[in-house]
């Protein structure tokens, strides 16, 4: 299903983090969302995941229950006493809910997902003992288990070694081949150029969206940088779209 973002505004203390954004994301697209710090990339992803309130505008064609969301590692409590297998099993929540019991097939699915991300043998390791890369592989395994048509990835390769990056990129490529919609926030422009067919360059508003090489031009990047720094403490009320 195509995702339609229409006139979307998301604010932080009334200041726009995303300002009147309109975009269309067709089904099966692998889209990178890039932009400078403070451009609103993660804010937009959170809104798509149903994690934040929309101030104005709409996001249509996206049901939060059909979304698999990979958060930044900082959002996890790594000290919680849970094993890799149990973490991956949390991905079955939508199917099992409060009370449906875990079947043998469910367990096998989780084991297969763990193997697919190269973590075989780590099933019973506590997540607190994992390296950053291993934890990221576990989170990818959870996304695999969720088996959703839309996948949102928030900076999935932050502080990750090249081997893990290469292995997990293969997982994403597999999702892309299976026509899943992948929306990925990243700071790594080289990664976007190499792997992501399409890119949205944000600086609170959409600077450019389209084929990655056409979007990531020096001119566009410079414009994005200037716009994201354009924060006005004494700004007037925005009248765009007001009745």
């Amino acid at each position: 299903m195509t995702i339609h973002v229409t006139n979307l505004t998301l604010t932080y203390e009334r200041h726009p983090a995303i300002h009147h954004l309109t975009a269309t994301i067709p089904q099966g697209e692998w889209l990178a969302i890039v932009g400078p710090n403070g451009a609103g990339k993660s804010t937009l992803l959170n809104a798509m995941a149903g994690l934040s309130t929309i101030d104005e505008g709409t996001i249509n064609g996206l049901d939060p229950r059909t979304v698999a969301y990979l958060p930044q590692q900082a959002q996890l409590d790594k000290s919680f006493p849970i094993t890799v297998l149990q973490l991956v099993m949390t991905g079955l929540w939508e199917e099992l809910g409060f009370s449906k019991s875990l079947s043998h097939a469910d367990c096998e699915r989780c084991q297969e997902a763990i193997a697919a991300v190269g973590l075989q043998g780590f099933e019973h390791r506590m997540i607190g003992t994992l390296s950053g890369g291993q934890l990221q592989r576990s989170l990818f395994a959870r996304v695999l288990v969720q088996n959703q048509p839309v996948i949102l990835l928030d900076e999935p390769f932050n502080a990750i070694d090249t081997k893990t990056l290469s292995d997990l990129t293969k997982v994403i490529e597999q999702w892309h081949e299976n026509k899943r919609t992948i929306i990925m926030v990243t700071h790594d422009l080289e990664y976007a150029k190499q792997y992501c067919p399409r890119t949205m360059l944000l600086a609170r508003e959409c600077i450019s969206q389209g084929p990655t090489k056409k979007v990531l031009t020096t001119e566009n990047l410079e414009r994005a940088r200037k716009l994201s720094e354009n924060f006005d403490e004494d700004a007037n009320d925005c009248m765009q779209g007001a009745a």
């Binding site: 995941a49 149903g50 409590d77 973490l87 099992l96 009370s99």
Partner: peptide
């Protein structure tokens, strides 16, 4: 009854918030 959502909420608070009620 609450055991599963409690565990998920502790490890990854954003995971359940997407679907609201749980």
């Amino acid at each position: 009854v609450l055991y599963r959502p409690l565990v998920i909420e502790c490890v990854d608070p954003s995971f359940l918030r997407r679907t609201g009620k749980a």
